Simulated assay, not measured.
Amino acid sequence: MGRVLPLLALRAFAETGRHGSIKRAAEAMGVTSGAVSQQLRLLEQRSGAPLFSRTRYGVELTEVGASVHPAVLRAFDQIEHGLDLLEARNAAQSITICTVPSFAASWLVPRLGRFTSRHPEIEVRVEASSELVDLRKGRVDVAIRHGLGDYPGLDAIHLMAPELIPVASPALLAGGPRLTEPGDCLAYPLLQDSDRADWRLWLKAMGIEGDARIERGPSFDDDFLLIRAAEAGQGIALIRDIYAKEEIASGRLAVAIERPWPTAFAYYAVTLPHVAERPAIARFVAWLMEEAQAG
């Protein structure tokens, strides 16, 4: 006990005996053939006995080498099995979540501490990206997406359906025309989403169509940017209510006119089927549902 073991030399011995070839052992270890040969010489010097003899086909174990090789090989196989178990356990307790930056910043991240307090054994990694991900590739465990819930071959769990509300800087509203009807918003610059669809759909739901002013105004590809532009007094923005709660509560934004509009789109937690087979994922999705219901 307490001896320093020549693990690299023993691994070279185990792999060379397994493959009957120094070259193939080197490939298995990711080193050069010369490095394997050097380690074998060191082990033979330490043991005081030859472990391999050369043949026309490669190398073969000597009588001494053959007597100890099964035990050494079994030991490395057990180490590798133990490492596999360790990595599998770590993977089972680590999950990656992907969602759009605005949802991550405004809703998910501020609440995430409650999950880690409840489940400190689960490590959560959050990726904020607007790009679609392929859950089947295994990099992402849960995708939180805004849509209609139609995700073929995947499980989509409804979380919440935010409403669109028109918001603006209080200073802009105080210095501009009075807003009493939805159509009065057209007297202000409109801050558009990337598709320039939200204002058109919201005004159509309010009975207003065909006005050229509906399509004008700068567009932004993320709600977080829309919020910042509205805070800066650049116009009125249509924002999902869950994104603007903090800004409204602090007075940085104000609701321009009380006409919330519930769209058909909602947020879903999207996973591969059989999510219960990964308890960490199942616990995270259950927590998401609980937080969404709490508002």
Rank of each mutant, 00 (worst) to 15 (best):
R3I: 12
R3K: 13
P6K: 12
L7T: 11
L10E: 12
L10A: 13
L10G: 08
R11H: 12
A12Y: 03
F13Q: 08
A14W: 10
R18W: 08
K23Q: 11
S33Q: 14
G34I: 08
A35D: 04
S37N: 13
Q39G: 01
Q39A: 13
L43W: 02
L43C: 09
E44K: 06
G48E: 09
R54P: 01
R56S: 15
T62I: 06
A66C: 00
V68G: 04
P70A: 04
V72W: 05
V72T: 00
D77A: 13
Q78L: 13
I79C: 03
L85I: 00
E87A: 07
N90C: 01
Q93P: 00
T96G: 04
I97D: 12
P101L: 03
F103M: 11
A105S: 14
W107H: 06
G113Y: 04
R114S: 15
S117V: 11
R118N: 05
V124L: 12
V124P: 10
V126F: 03
V126R: 04
E127N: 10
E127H: 10
S129F: 09
S130Y: 08
E131Q: 15
L132W: 10
K137A: 13
G138N: 08
V142W: 10
A143Q: 09
G149T: 07
Y151R: 06
P152C: 06
G153K: 10
D155S: 13
I157N: 11
H158P: 10
L159P: 10
L159M: 11
E163H: 12
S169Q: 09
S169E: 05
S169C: 13
L172N: 09
L179K: 08
G183H: 10
D184A: 07
A187L: 15
L191Y: 03
D193C: 00
D193Q: 06
D193W: 00
D195P: 03
D195M: 12
R196Q: 14
A197D: 14
R200A: 15
L201M: 13
W202T: 09
D211G: 03
A212W: 02
I214A: 00
R216W: 00
R216S: 00
D223W: 02
F224S: 14
L225K: 10
L225E: 11
L225S: 11
I227K: 05
A230G: 00
A230C: 06
G235L: 01
A237S: 09
Y243K: 01
A244L: 03
A244R: 03
I248K: 03
A249Q: 12
G251N: 07
R259V: 13
W261P: 01
A264L: 11
A264M: 11
A264N: 07
A266F: 01
V270S: 05
L272D: 06
H274S: 14
E277F: 00
R278D: 08
P279Q: 11
A280C: 04
V285Y: 04
A286W: 02
L288K: 06
M289I: 05
E290M: 06
E291D: 06
E291C: 01
E291S: 04
